[in-house]
């Protein structure tokens, strides 16, 4: 049995490869992973688990999406606190960017907003209007103004999420299609907002973790 871990800031993705080759997929809050007593063959991610070989996240993303995307493709991973994209040309790595560590307009902020305003993720819907979220703090201010002017928290947060989708598309250099990896795959409001700008194909949350598996 071999364990592989993508330890995100908020959630950890674990793939266990059993001796018969069967793969088991788990998502857990990262803060609970240390207590599991597991040993990992390879890890990646912001959280520091020193009991495995640590892989570069961009490399893990590039390896994980092999065979899952077109020869010419832009793959974007949007997580709790950072965004990174890779462009392949003729199946070869051509370009990349990583917004390093600004969490102001990523998953953690959306989770905090949902908790703060007691809003369920499912209740967010794609809206035409978007807030500028280049600076997430200014984006938060827009939400507060909007709600104080009578807008529902759901709609105000949806505008913020639309802003993140637009920012993401711009950050990835406005491609015609994005292969999306990471937690935002499960945020319908985000995916629908992103589809206003480009085609979107969802890769799910385990791409980086799959990129750790060499066999």
């Amino acid at each position: 049995m071999k364990n592989y871990l993508d330890a995100g800031t908020t959630y950890s993705k674990i793939i266990t490869v059993h001796e018969n080759g069967k793969r088991e997929f788990k998502i857990l809050p990262s803060k609970t992973v240390r207590n599991l007593g597991l040993t990992f063959v390879k890890t990646c991610g912001h959280m520091d688990f020193k009991n495995g070989n640590c892989e570069n996240e961009i490399v893990a993303l590039a390896k994980g999406c092999r065979g899952k995307v077109d020869n010419d493709a832009v793959v974007l991973d949007l997580g709790s606190r950072d965004a990174k994209w890779i462009r392949f040309k003729n199946s070869k790595f051509a370009d990349m960017d990583w917004n390093t560590s600004c969490a102001s307009s990523t998953g953690a902020t959306v989770e905090m907003l949902l908790k703060f305003y007691d809003v369920k993720l499912d209740s967010l819907t794609c809206v035409d209007k978007k807030f500028p979220v280049t600076c997430g703090v200014f984006g938060l201010e827009k939400i507060m103004d909007d709600i104080s002017n009578g807008e529902s928290a759901q709609n105000a947060i949806s505008k913020f999420v639309h802003g993140i989708a637009y920012n993401t598309w711009t950050f990835a250099q406005k491609p015609e299609k994005i292969y999306l990896s990471g937690g935002f795959c499960e945020n319908k409001c985000f995916v629908d907002s992103l589809r206003k700008y480009c085609n979107v194909e969802l890769l799910g949350r385990f791409i980086l973790c799959e990129g750790l598996i060499d066999e």
Binding site: N56, E57, W98, T100
Partner: peptide
């Protein structure tokens, strides 16, 4: 350099 910038350089060197 932040860790992320280092990782970016490292990824470029490994993937190209």
């Amino acid at each position: 350099a932040t860790n992320s910038v280092r990782a970016k350089i490292e990824a470029f060197l490994r993937l190209r």
